[in-house]
Amino acid sequence: MRLGGGASFLSTSLLKVLRELCAAAYVGVRIYLRYPMWILSDLITSPLWAVVILLPILLFLPPEAWGSGVVAQNFFWGMVLWYVVSTSLMGIGSAVRSEQQMGTLEQLLLTNANRAVLFTRRLTFELFSLTLNTAYMYVFVQLLFGKPITVENPLPVLLVLAAAMAIAVGFGLIYGTLILWIKNPGALSNILQFVIMGLSGIFYSIRGLPAPLQYISYALPFTYVADLLRHEAMGTPTLLPLHLEYLLVAALAVALNAAGYLAILHVEKRLKRTGKLGVY
């Protein structure tokens, strides 16, 4: 873009962010394809893990109900949502930690690139992995249960999944900022993952939870994503009126991303001032 040309400030900024997104995506893809054994290992281990998670749940049902279509549907969408939560915490949130460990965090923060883009560069291969795993689980669950996985409203399902990823990015940015601040999260990611999965109704509706826990569930953003996804895919009733739940999910996607972005800027500035940016 020529200096002093006709481009507006907004379009220049958008172009810059787009370029940064492309560069981040390119890095993400290069890293993903550098380790083909990991891709192969993911493809083999995903169904094995699915069986390991599914069987303990099925043991609560009588054997004649194991082939139920509803269980298969719940399980399939639960696995998809699990990937989304993992992407948020392990993919985006922990990206800061992996940059710290590789010793590239300081170099990244010396650039004038958008901070949110820097920390979401793993998003490309996380998205690729999510798509691959979803397609794979779709076939696997159908083979396992012998029941078709049907989607009642395909377009709204895609819309909800896009919103889920937006929320995952926002949540991941906030979590990533926390890691930037505390340096070593230890096992926090693993603990948080189980807490979110348990309380957000990833595999089941939160209506089955004890009343006090339901209050916590209502405060978690993934609860509404899971609820909407099951509604659009399986026709289950929603927790809130449908239009309100859509509105809430959209608002959460915007608010979490804005909060995450501002938090990164604030923490980076503070760490630079106190000289703790490179301490870990």
Binding site: P56, I57, F60, G186, L188, I191, F194, Y204
Partner: peptide, 26 residues
């Protein structure tokens, strides 16, 4: 990194709670 030790102690309870929660729900 003591949080890892606490996590290892907490994880069995959490995973068991998760399986039981889903089991009761369905």
């Amino acid at each position: 990194y003591p949080t890892w030790i606490f996590a290892f102690i907490a994880l069995p309870y959490m995973l068991s709670g998760l399986f039981n929660g889903i089991g009761y729900s369905i």
